[in-house]
Computed example of a mutant assay.
Amino acid sequence: MSTESSGGRLPTAPVVAAGLAGGYVVASSTGIRPLGGLVLGAAGLLAGRTWLMRHGPTTAGLLGGVYLLAFGASHPLAKQIGAWPAVAVVSAVSAAAAYFGSDRSAR
């Protein structure tokens, strides 16, 4: 399978932002938190697979860790600044990490 057809050219910054924000939207609008987790997980797996193919396990692990930490940080941050602002902050931080850690060098 070629890198291009298997996601090597996929920009991961919007994927991680959509995973965090989309997971929140799905969970809050349906009231089914595991469904939001499914969205979060699917985006994380897609981005993680792309990072692994592009840069190997170290970068994939680091960026995956940022993604998971962002998700975890969104909960206490939401208590301080509100749910949507927290989701916006962690989505932006994760997207920036994905861009600078992977997407920019893949161009």
Rank of each mutant, 00 (worst) to 15 (best):
V25G: 03
A73P: 05
T3N: 14
R49N: 12
L62A: 14
A17M: 08
A70H: 05
V26S: 03
G61V: 08
A18Y: 01
G37N: 09
M1W: 06
A27K: 08
H75M: 00
A47Q: 06
S29M: 14
M1R: 14
R107V: 09
D103N: 13
L20T: 04
L62G: 12
G48H: 14
E4D: 11
R33T: 11
T58D: 13
S91T: 01
G22W: 01
A70W: 00
A18E: 00
T58C: 10
A70N: 05
S6R: 14
T3A: 14
V90A: 05
A96H: 13
V25Y: 10
A13K: 07
W84T: 13
T59P: 00
A88N: 06
E4L: 14
A17H: 04
T59A: 15
R107T: 09
V15G: 06
L52R: 11
L10W: 09
R107F: 12
A17K: 02
G41K: 05
D103M: 13
I32W: 07
A73Y: 05
T59N: 10
G36L: 02
L77Y: 11
L69N: 06
V90S: 04
T59L: 14
L46Y: 02
G41Y: 05
V87N: 07
A13Q: 04
L45Q: 10
A106E: 15
S29I: 09
R54W: 04
V93E: 07
A42H: 08
G72M: 13
V25E: 02
G64I: 03
V90N: 01
L10S: 07
K79Q: 11
G56Q: 03
I32Q: 11
S94L: 03
A95H: 00
L10T: 08
A98C: 10
L68Q: 11
A18M: 12
Y67K: 07
R54F: 03
I32P: 06
A92K: 04
A13Y: 02
V26I: 07
A83S: 12
A27S: 15
S102D: 12
H55E: 15
S105A: 15
V39N: 03
V16L: 02
P14V: 00
G48K: 14
V15I: 15
V66A: 13
G36S: 07
G19R: 05
L40C: 05
A92T: 07
H75G: 01
L68H: 13
S94A: 14
L68G: 15
L45H: 10
G8Y: 10
G36I: 02
P14C: 06
P76R: 13
V39I: 12
A97I: 00
T59M: 15
M1L: 12
G64H: 05
R104T: 04
P57R: 09
L63N: 03
G37Q: 08
S105Y: 12
L62R: 12
W84K: 13
G48C: 14
F100I: 05
S2P: 02
T59E: 13
Y67F: 11
T50P: 07
A21Q: 05
L40D: 02
A78L: 06
G37W: 04
A78Y: 00
V25P: 02
A70K: 00
A73W: 01
G23A: 03
A97W: 00
W84H: 08
I32S: 01
A106M: 14
L20P: 00
A47D: 01
S91R: 00
T50L: 09
V89M: 11
M53H: 06
E4F: 09
